[in-house]
Design a protein around this nucleic acid. Structure first.
Length: 936
DNA sequence: TGATTCACG
DNA sequence: GACGTACGTGAATCAG
């Protein structure tokens, strides 16, 4: 087909694809020879997804993937420093560049690169040709340097955000429409690409100037007319540099392209060629998936050149590529079959296990069925508590036919599940272990695929089964919604027909087993075996115990507080409506914003990106400080409302009817840094900072005759920073037991420790915290409510006095850039896939990378303490109940309070030993009382 | 469902 | 006078 009217050309920014793929995936290598292929794998996945998604009315008629030929181009002649400070691509990415070209061709998509030109120029030239021929163009990229091309039938598509970029989007970003984007870029420059621009002028100012003078040339000619002297000077002094900058950012629409548009016509991939290429790369799952899609047989895996030991046992039949066959799963309905399966488990020494229940709350849900898998594709479901759909009016349906009695099954399985020689594999085993422990079975030993993934892939993606199956087995699990429905009409698993349940449940165990076989050897390759074995796996039984124990909560205390809050709120509500002169929903930020800034026209109203006024506490506090009553009352109302809805009301619903206690659930793999997270309810954010909120802690009480004791690490993150960054002054202060913030203040402001002004100490404290968070002048200024330049001076002084801190930060960031992850003191890896992105994301990623080793090391330390705790307190009448990041809460017989504090403190303070010898001591503070309020 | 707000370390 | 920011979480609520 000739390219012309009605044609639609897709131009894919190949280099962007490669880098994204590289950073999104762990460093995979080809099994047979160790060739790094992670980026190629990701690239192929993206291309496949792209091809799959290309159907429908807006499908392209023509397409090409565009690459950079090399990093040297004609622009370097123009300006030698252009992109000069770009880091070299990582060593293991280099050999993958040519493979991505091969991959593109294997997909039967034209791939293009031209010596001396950037991919962007090729994209520009082809876009112009296509537009001139009357066709449409979509550029698949989010690179801002391409935005100058948008308009007149040319659009961009950000594949990452799944968002189109049109003229208006460009205007939002640059403050001008596409035809003026180069002018703005020329003025603003770009530090990433080393485009000089005009010093001190950013995009905002540049857009302002261009909009005023029309275009860059006019602006430069008439620069003398500019009123601001500094701006005028800059433009006059740097006119030449700005003109060069413009040449650097302007894309070439007329470069020689060795191909015509007609040749880019979309072609179907040749199944043979494509699957052979994927097979050569040894992407087994992708090969299979593509073959399925194209309706051909997957080629046989290439023989591994490494001589296979002849007498080695037959390899486990090749696993993750075996298709999922739901019809092949067994349903165990009689004892003979059950015994047969138990035999198979004993023979192998491991089994993947999954329990099905009536709900997600292990403390309240009932067991409905158990599923076992012994080989990929070989799984069996044992229905135990299914009920036939037609129950009586009260929903108490009778047990369905054809199920073994629960007790018979549990009795038969118990020896296997508790056998120390048989490994039980689960996905989030804490859930299943807790469930089964309620039925008298202590599952051990265990492996957990969720935790394996967490140890290997933290920061890359979530670790739920669906995500993992999708990512590593290219398999989409049956959604539970398809069985249970959703919303009001949702049913519980016991009402699902057994035939349906078999497929779903057995699939889960099957997937778990396949993931385990895939992950187990990888743990070692990625060097996180120690992390998994010492920080993840042993934590499961410890947390399960804590969650089962729960903490006693006094309902009456909460309920009385709720009533008091309700009255207070009603009074405040009346007062606020009075002040506003009308009734409105105080809980609605939108309505509140309109009242404050439109109706009352108070100053300081700032609209965010959604166009709504900000009404956060900081904004309202500023208004209140100016003497406005309404915002002050709203702040009061908000505080009470929060306490009531989140704490005094919701917490009551979480009191277990039988135990009278609240049983939170900890997610081990929730937070990227290694911290735990607490849910249903969250007991890690019970108020303490405000006096009013603190009272909620009086509702958390010890049983009669017992006490609560709380022990928390003092300044653990700062101590870790002092150790990791090796700051002698901080280290010494901690060794001497000095007040660390006062010491910092004294160093920074040259004031004596004696009689220090508390506000000076407060500022030093804020800086100390800021450092842990990846400090910025802006952030510190906002936190301390001081001018920005002053905040920046503080930071400069801090870095001068403690130069090691800056070194540490720089080291950490470059480590993240080079490896794609940072590590804690104990070897936990936290991936930083966005560290090399541009724009505001870069700032976020940078700060997160700086913070992660510190927060993560602290998390590792308390994990180590928790894991050792059961043995350390076994001889005491004490139970560990809660963890709040740097604090542990125990319930103990009154008589043993002191002994327990001593034992726990010992474990906590020595928790880093012997793996890490900290150069600072860890110090633990302890408290005790009848309630959490007293103990803290 | 996403944005906003706010509780904690 | 800058692209825009403190790090990590979970829950309740509003609005579309």
């Amino acid at each position: 087909m000739t390219f012309g009217k009605g044609s639609h050309l897709h131009l894919i920014d190949g280099s962007a694809f490669i880098f994204r793929a590289y950073h999104a995936l762990p460093p995979l290598t080809r099994k047979s020879d160790g060739l790094p292929v992670g980026a190629v794998a990701g690239f192929c996945n993206m291309l496949f997804r792209y091809v799959e998604g290309n159907s429908g009315p807006d499908a392209p008629t023509h397409a090409a993937v565009i690459f950079d030929y090399s990093s040297k181009t004609f622009r370097n002649e123009l300006y030698p420093l252009y992109k000069a400070q770009r880091p070299e691509p990582p060593e293991d990415l280099r050999p993958q560049f040519p493979l991505t070209r091969d991959a593109t061709r294997a997909f039967n998509i034209c791939c293009l690169e031209v010596e001396d030109y950037e991919a962007d120029d090729i994209i520009a030239t082809l876009s112009c040709q296509a537009r001139d021929a009357g066709g449409r163009v979509t550029i698949i990229s989010s690179d801002k340097d391409l935005m100058q091309l948008v308009g007149d039938g040319v659009e961009m598509f950000d594949a990452m955000k799944n968002k189109r970029i049109d003229r208006e989007e460009v205007f939002e970003k640059f403050g001008v429409y596409p035809e003026k984007v180069v002018d703005v870029q020329a003025l603003a420059g770009d530090s990433v690409d080393n485009i000089p621009g005009a010093p001190g002028i950013g995009i905002k100012t540049a857009a302002l100037l261009i909009n005023e003078y029309g275009d860059l040339e006019t602006l430069l000619e008439r620069a003398g007319e500019i009123k601001q002297p500094k701006r005028r000077q800059v433009l006059q002094d740097h006119a030449e540099q700005i003109r060069i900058s413009r040449k650097l950012v302007e894309l070439h629409c007329d470069m020689p392209v060795p191909i015509t548009l007609d040749e880019l016509e979309v072609r179907r991939p040749d199944p043979q060629v494509l699957t052979e290429f994927l097979n050569l790369m040894e992407f087994r799952t992708l090969t299979k998936r593509v073959a399925e899609k194209l309706g051909v047989d997957a080629p046989l895996p290439a023989p591994t050149p490494v001589a296979e030991a002849r007498d080695a046992p037959a390899p486990v039949p090749s696993l993750e590529q075996l298709p999922f066959d739901h019809a092949a799963y067994t349903c165990i309905r009689d004892e003979a079959v059950l015994i047969e399966w138990i035999g198979m488990i004993r023979e192998r020494g491991y089994v993947a296990l999954d329990t099905e229940t009536t709900g997600l709350d292990e403390m309240r849900a009932d067991l409905v069925g158990i599923c076992l898998a012994v080989e990929p594709g070989k799984a069996a479901y044992i229905p135990l508590g299914h009920r036939s759909g037609s129950g009586d009016l009260f929903g108490s349906a009778a047990l369905a036919e054809g199920q073994l009695p629960m007790q018979v099954v549990l009795d038969a399985l118990k020896p296997v599940l508790e056998d120390p020689a048989i490994l039980k594999i689960g996905q989030n085993m804490k859930y299943d272990a807790k469930m089964l422990s309620r039925y008298g079975i202590d599952v051990a030993p265990i492996d957990d695929t969720m935790l394996m993934s967490y140890a290997m892939h933290s920061g890359l993606h979530g670790h739920g089964m669906d995500t993992l199956a999708e990512q590593y087995l290219s398999h989409s699990c049956i959604p539970i919604k398809s069985l249970l429905g959703s919303g009001k009409s949702a049913i519980t698993f016991d009402l699902v027909p057994i035939d349906e349940a078999v497929k779903y449940a057995a699939e889960d165990a099957d997937v778990t087993l396949r993931l385990w076989q895939l992950f187990k050897p990888q743990l070692h390759q990625v060097r996180v075996t120690t992390v998994y074995e010492t920080l993840e796996r042993p934590l499961v039984p410890v947390l399960a115990e804590m969650e089962r124990a729960g903490i006693r909560v006094d309902r009456d205390v909460l309920s009385r507080m709720s009533n008091a809050f309700a009255q207070k709120m009603a009074a405040l509500e009346a007062e606020i409506h009075e002040l506003a002169g009308e009734r409105f929903n105080i809980g609605s930020p939108k309505q509140l914003g309109e009242i404050l800034f439109d109706k009352m026209s108070l100053q300081g109203g700032k609209k965010g990106k959604t166009g709504a006024y900000g009404t956060g506490a900081d904004v309202l506090e500023d208004l209140a400080a100016e003497g406005h009553d309404l915002p002050a009352r709203v702040l009061d109302w908000r505080q009470i409302s929060k306490l009531k809805s989140t704490y005094t009301d919701a917490l009551q619903d979480h009191i277990h009817p039988e135990t009278g206690r609240v049983h939170t659930c900890y997610s081990i793999a929730g937070a990227n840094t290694g911290r735990l997270a607490s849910t249903d309810p969250n007991l890690q954010n019970i108020p303490i900072r405000s006096e009013e909120g603190r009272r909620i802690r009086t509702a958390f009480v010890a049983e009669p005759g017992k006490k609560l004791i709380a022990l928390d690490y003092s300044q653990i993150e700062l101590r870790i920073l002092a150790h990791m960054a090796d700051i002698p002054a901080l280290r010494e202060a901690f060794r001497q037991g000095h007040d660390i913030h006062a010491m910092t203040a004294s160093e920074m402001f040259n004031v004596p420790l004696e009689g220090m002004d508390p506000s000076i100490r407060r500022q030093a404290k804020a800086i100390n915290f800021g450092v842990i968070y990846g400090i910025s002048g802006f952030g510190l200024a906002r936190n301390l409510r001081i001018p920005r330049d002053q905040a920046q001076r503080f930071i400069d002084t801090y870095f001068e006095r403690f130069p090691g801190i800056r070194d540490y930060m720089d080291r950490t960031v470059s480590e993240a850039r080079e490896q794609g992850f940072v590590t804690t003191l104990f070897g936990r890896k936290i991936h930083t896939p966005e560290i090399n992105s541009k724009g505001p994301t870069a700032g976020f990623a940078r700060r997160a990378a700086i913070n992660a080793p510190i927060q993560g090391s602290a998390a590792d330390i308390i994990r180590r303490a928790m894991i050792r705790m059961p043995d350390a307190i076994a001889h005491l009448p004490a139970r560990m109940l809660l963890q709040v990041h740097d604090e542990l809460l125990f319930e103990v017989d009154e008589a043993a309070v002191d002994d327990t504090i001593a034992a726990v403190r010992q474990v906590m303070e020595q928790a880093a030993d012997p793996v890490v010898r900290l150069s600072v001591p860890l110090v633990v503070d302890a408290g005790q009382g009848d309630s959490w309020a007293e103990a803290h």
